[in-house]
Write a protein that binds this DNA or RNA. Sequence first.
DNA 1: AAAGCAATCCAAAGCGCTTTGGCTGCACGC
DNA 2: GCGTGCAGCCAAAGCGCTTTGGATTGCTTT
Lengths: 340, 340
Amino acid sequence: MNLKQLSDMLSLSQTTVSRALNGYPEVSEETRRRVQDAAKRHGYRPNPSARRLATGKAGMIGYIMPTGQSVDIDPHFIEFLSGLGDYARTHELDLVLSPTTIEDEETTYRRVVANKQVDAVYVSSPKRADRRIILLNQLGLPYIVHGRSEGLDFDYPFLDIDNEGAFHDAARLLIQLGHKRIALINGESDQTFAIHRERGTRRALASSGLDLPPSRVHSLALTEENGYRAASALLERKDRPTAILCSSMMMTLGVVRAMRELSLDMPGDVSLISHDDVFHYLKPESFPAPLTTTRSSIRAAGQRIAERLAARLTGLESGARAEVWPVDLVVRGSIAGAKE
Amino acid sequence: MNLKQLSDMLSLSQTTVSRALNGYPEVSEETRRRVQDAAKRHGYRPNPSARRLATGKAGMIGYIMPTGQSVDIDPHFIEFLSGLGDYARTHELDLVLSPTTIEDEETTYRRVVANKQVDAVYVSSPKRADRRIILLNQLGLPYIVHGRSEGLDFDYPFLDIDNEGAFHDAARLLIQLGHKRIALINGESDQTFAIHRERGTRRALASSGLDLPPSRVHSLALTEENGYRAASALLERKDRPTAILCSSMMMTLGVVRAMRELSLDMPGDVSLISHDDVFHYLKPESFPAPLTTTRSSIRAAGQRIAERLAARLTGLESGARAEVWPVDLVVRGSIAGAKE
DNA sequence: AAAGCAATCCAAAGCGCTTTGGCTGCACGC
DNA sequence: GCGTGCAGCCAAAGCGCTTTGGATTGCTTT
């Protein structure tokens, strides 16, 4: 069933039928109803390719997905996708994934724009002065950043959580508990979220006259293995920290492993606070002591970003709307007062 | 730059230019070269929407993604996606994700077919007599199943690993080590992979005259929490198993937690073998004793499926090609001879 | 020398939609 | 009675590609 058949059937022109269905005002209400009725009854669905060709709009959102033999997609991406899906499925919005290597990233962005494959994209895991944001800005393709960048000389639309505030508050809590030697096991240092978390931690420490020396900061990809290595390095030192802030639960698994090997107790010997993206497959309660966490659902963020991207497609949202979500600090058994 | 501009520039017709670019024989080699040259020089890229409209081919592959507030996408999906990306990015193949609820699954499949949004799809986590496969078969949309279904009265193309063989071999190894009470912590019982793993385990036990009573099989979603619960239930019994087979590393985390709580040693008190999908963020070496695993890279499967889907787009592959990969059994320190 | 045949190339007709630029008829005001 | 304005509808021109059904040319055949 295509437009022509439908309009023939109704003895109307394609123009009128098209307008009726797309809500243009120059159609009488009665005609519109008649058309909508027939369309529904015959299951008419405009052909997206044709529409796309005619309008130049794709009706889809995109994600340029970095891949590569040595690139591992962050498992949190799954949660984010779930969130996107939660919104998208109720709006018949599809998502186009365009895999690319880091080197060809720019080419891929350009290709997607030139092909008009999508009307908007989202950008994840932004770094300082992120090239992609700069590129998208000059290409004029609508986008929303999940996270934030720094050192850009223009504003851009994003959704981020208050990483600095979260880690500031977490560190402050540890300080209030009497901890003086606090360490940070963070994400890779070029990621903005990691920069913010370190900044928050440092600020809390500084305001109590405490220090965060380089030896107590590890910035690594968020794997169990890295958590283990970082924690081992930290805890084998004589001036080992009495409290650790950790950027992901997966890493925290490794931290716990290191502690166990050194027969250190949690929270007796070391207090631990982890960031929790709310990952169904691994919960804070599943640790030797239930983890105190800074919690923010990445899935909820996915939903919100899909919603905002959709708003951009229809022109409801535009400009450099910034959105920063507060982060819960959920206290559980993994922290205690410092002994020394 | 579009076809018309390019052909004007070359003083050729659009027909000839189109044919030259698409490798049709009725163009002289010299002309073809001239055209290809110009196309490259001016960065001409055919507009996909126009091409799609004209040919009815989308040039994309699709995945109907089940979502829902209570649906959690399997984290292995990430690995699979990485694999897909590995292949796809070298072929400028894009992937369209169409989120849907389980209830609307059929509608979504029909929509995607009607819209001709994609030329082929892949189906993941198949169940017994999977509805999606039946539907796709009658809709005539090319597809490949990752995994297998059972109880279908027709053949279909799939790529699966030898789950039955893997768990058979793993169980046999445990038996050879003297274990008599072997338990299985499996995935949800409607998933074919879980059915196969149970079958393999049961077969190995049976051929040594051993039993796998219902009380020693737990079939649950692959979360840490479920691993913990299942293991707790198993290990608190008087006739507790001396060896456990576990379907995922995430679950195995929970198993280890349960063992720790009960002060059971691995492999002293309980031997453990886990299936490993090769997940970069959590490795078999990260356990109290390095895990013996049945190993198969889900990422490699993603690559292969992308390759086969691409072959289907171009007509290189067709029919119900079945592909079953063997699974490595990697022995590490988590297993030992049975005491009793 | 007429006919047949590849080898090349082209004009034009779609593919199914949106949108421009009218056209018609009726009510209204003067 | 005549211009005006407006509501409601339509024909046709794209959007940028592929593909059908010829044309044209230069040779080889008979």
